[in-house]
Design a protein around this nucleic acid. Structure first.
Lengths: 336, 336
DNA sequence: GTGAAAGCGCTAACAT
DNA sequence: ATGTTAGCGCTTTCAC
């Protein structure tokens, strides 16, 4: 029923040795044109497809790249995934996918599972990647690129945008629109470099414009809708009414907008709201979300290209790739 | 660097034959407790992991299931994917993912790629699956479950909700809220059974309530935001102002709401809008979308369970699985 | 330029 | 209960 025709069958039918067949399918050694044609014909005729398992067993190349993600259904994740998938396919790699639900144990389990499957490389997407896991991966020698808030702290290949600059830019934009009291809702909780960078970007924009930093205006939470909602609600319930709230994630920013609505204010008339990432929902929600655009598809594409380079033993000129961001002005921020 | 310890190494170190090692790791034949412990110790100590490639080569089992999807970033798709992923992992299968972007050629390419990778089974998610592709898959003998608007027309395993009933229910709900002039925006274009079922559901609810069917109120389009937007805009621009618009997809329904807004109407005060699927955005958008809830996660879970059953040669009692739906009343539909 | 043969790491008869 | 051996389908020396 299934593809049961092997290299042996082809060899026999073509009246040559299996080595010759191997040579023509891999173009590994010169073969007489005539004999090559013959073999190709037989392959065509029989519908022979080389068994990659057998091939991998000897070459130690699986043409498999593992991708571990916190959750496919997160839009930040799946827009990156699109880029990974497309480039991988271009290079004839297949993607082995693994969800971790941001669970540390699941994450380790995924790594091991993928490793056992003989993946040649890996793209690791994680909100909050533990140092031990990075060490473990690096120790296994699996060529890996990281897209993670935390991985940027270590000497491993990562791709991201310039978060400090991006945060700075948006804060500045908000200020330029006349906003002074700007709440800052961060979609991360730990003490990571990314967080520090973002906070720095926020603070320095404030400072440059002579606005005093106010700890009460900042919140730490998760990337999801709910975190944004709760953080913003909390601010409002503390009696603070900011001019604008800047949330470092779009789904969370939508949560923030809803919290503003639910507290009886209007976006953007009473309070402006800005996001970060520019995922699909930023364009679908009304008011359309003003946000920091990250080239998510490209980030995935670049990440997997780096992995493939490493697999091929090529040197990576730049371990810390930073892609350009921009402020995407839409409707949720207006001049005050 | 990488896991280079093989079964041979373990055998030598444990002072037994490789068959014995094989037996303990597979629990395939009885082994003396003492010797088993010894082997286990060595495995522990060396960090030995069996090479699944070699194993697959002989057993002809790859523990790989292919999943082909139109696009990971579609929320309908990725919520299903979550279910697939989790159950697959439970059964120790890995997921090989392939995006088709709804392109017929890419779809065929994906099938062949996955097949070459020796997948044992497949879940096929497609908006509009060609008969030839189904035939091809079935002909290859790859155990496959389909989640597709079109596959339900054929004698292959599928999972879905009862679309006629679901459409009927929502239309009825709308009518019960006092709506009479109900626009029906479908997220499919072809002449498929699903489409017919949905249209039937819509029509029969109308008929039962003595409302005349009006061709001018129905539109055919895609599943995306934009299709919903354009279809609804078109209705409004034809000078038709419906009481409600029922869109058979949530992202498209959000598009519909925005079209309503952009034409100067309010949802739900002027026009009610209902969706289908109940994906994340239905809960995030304001007004929250009243929609037909489909158990997407479960659909994925069931689909892959069916595939695994087929792989194991078990009989599938029910080829056409229908999961329960329900009307999720939120804010976008109100009494007229 | 082509074929023979070894071997990748493992499982599954077949012996013992 | 354990060891020996023959492959699984392929690539790759190594001869010719």
């Amino acid at each position: 029923m299934k593809n049961t025709v092997t290299i042996k069958d082809v060899a026999k039918k073509a009246g040559v040795s299996i080595s010759t067949v191997s040579r023509v399918i891999n173009n590994s050694k010169p073969v007489t044109d005539e004999i090559k044609k013959k073999v190709l014909d037989v392959i065509e005729e029989t519908g022979y497809v080389p068994n990659p398992l057998a091939r991998s067993l000897v070459t130690k190349k699986s043409q498999l790249i593992g991708v571990v993600v916190p959750e496919v259904s997160d839009s930040f994740v799946n827009e990156i995934l699109n880029g990974i998938e497309e480039i991988a396919r271009m290079y004839n790699y297949d993607i082995l996918l693994s969800n971790t639900y941001s669970d540390k144990n699941e994450e380790m389990r995924s790594i091991n599972l993928l490793r056992a499957k003989q993946i040649e490389g890996m793209v690791m997407i994680s909100w909050d990647l533990a140092k031990e896991h990075i060490d473990y991966i690096e120790n296994c020698g699996i060529p890996t690129t990281y897209i993670s808030k935390t991985a940027r702290d270590y000497d491993v290949p990562t791709v991201s945008v310039n978060n400090e600059k991006a945060t700075y830019d948006m804060t500045n934009h908000l200020i330029s629109q006349g906003h002074k009291k700007i709440a800052f809702v961060m979609t991360s909780a730990g003490d990571t470099r990314l967080e520090k960078e973002r906070l720095d970007g926020y603070k320095s924009a404030l400072a440059e414009n002579g606005i005093e930093f106010n700890e009460e205006l900042v919140r730490y939470g998760g990337v999801d809708y709910n975190s944004g909602y709760e953080s913003t609600k909390d601010i409002l319930e503390k009696g603070i009414v900011p001019d604008a709230v800047f949330v470092t994630g779009d789904e969370a920013a939508v949560g923030a907008m809803n919290a503003v609505f639910d507290k009886g204010f209007s976006v953007p008339n009473d309070i402006s709201v800005a996001g970060f990432n520019d995922v699909k929902i930023a364009r679908m929600y009304r008011p359309k979300l003003t946000t920091v655009h990250q080239p998510l598809y490209d980030m995935g594409a670049v990440a997997i290209r780096m992995v493939i380079k490493m697999i091929n033993g090529e040197e990576i000129e730049e371990k810390k790739v930073e892609l350009p961001h921009r402020i995407e002005e839409r409707e949720s921020v207006i001049k005050k």
